[in-house]
Simulated assay, not measured.
Amino acid sequence: MPHGSRQFDVVIPVCEVLASVIAPSSGVVLWQDGSTWMIDFEGNLHGAANIRTFGDRVAHAAGRAATRYPTVARCAVRLDQVESVGSFSESQGQVILGSPEQLTKWLGLEVIPYGELLTTDARSQARRHLERIRRPNPALAREMSRRLGLPR
């Protein structure tokens, strides 16, 4: 799939067995492989510097799922074992909330700061900046997109 076109359901485990396998606050995405439902997850257990937010954790899990990259952080699930809390839009570089109450509990927060839902990689940040200037200055946005190699 072309960069920027992927969208995944963001889920959290609701059964004890699955929750015991997945680190708390992990980013978890749901996808289908034929008739089998799969999840990929990322908990940043090793403290990678480029994975700072929940959005980053979800983006890493979604990237592995999209490319079917081999990982131990993947398993088959039944749909009654997970609950959808939103979706991940690669093109926007963010998690779009559907069930903030459940996600708040999963993350162990009282309130989810907006920045926690965003990816922090340079490409996503550049896309968001471009969106902010696109309406008032479309010519500048086109030129910046061209120079950064981003889709217009």
Results as ranks from 00 to 15, higher is better:
P2V: 12
P2L: 14
P2S: 13
H3P: 06
H3D: 06
H3T: 08
H3N: 08
G4C: 04
S5M: 07
S5D: 06
R6M: 14
R6I: 11
R6N: 12
R6A: 13
Q7G: 05
Q7K: 15
Q7W: 09
Q7V: 15
Q7A: 13
F8S: 07
F8W: 10
D9C: 10
V10L: 08
V10R: 00
V10D: 01
V10Y: 01
I12K: 03
I12F: 08
I12E: 03
P13T: 05
P13K: 04
P13C: 10
V14Q: 15
V14W: 11
V14F: 10
V14G: 10
V14N: 15
C15L: 07
E16I: 08
E16W: 08
E16T: 14
V17Y: 07
V17R: 12
V17D: 10
L18K: 11
L18S: 13
S20Q: 07
S20Y: 01
S20I: 04
S20C: 06
V21A: 09
V21W: 06
V21N: 06
V21R: 12
I22P: 00
P24C: 07
P24R: 13
S25E: 14
S25T: 15
S26L: 12
S26R: 11
S26P: 09
G27W: 01
G27I: 01
V28F: 03
V28I: 15
V29H: 01
V29W: 00
V29I: 07
V29T: 03
L30S: 12
L30C: 10
L30H: 14
L30I: 09
W31R: 10
Q32Y: 05
D33A: 15
S35R: 06
S35M: 05
S35H: 06
T36H: 05
T36M: 06
T36A: 09
W37P: 03
M38R: 11
M38N: 09
M38Y: 07
I39E: 01
I39L: 07
I39V: 15
D40T: 04
D40A: 02
D40P: 05
F41W: 03
F41T: 00
F41Y: 04
E42L: 05
G43V: 00
G43D: 00
G43R: 00
L45M: 07
L45A: 03
H46S: 14
H46C: 09
H46G: 04
A48P: 02
A48N: 08
N50G: 08
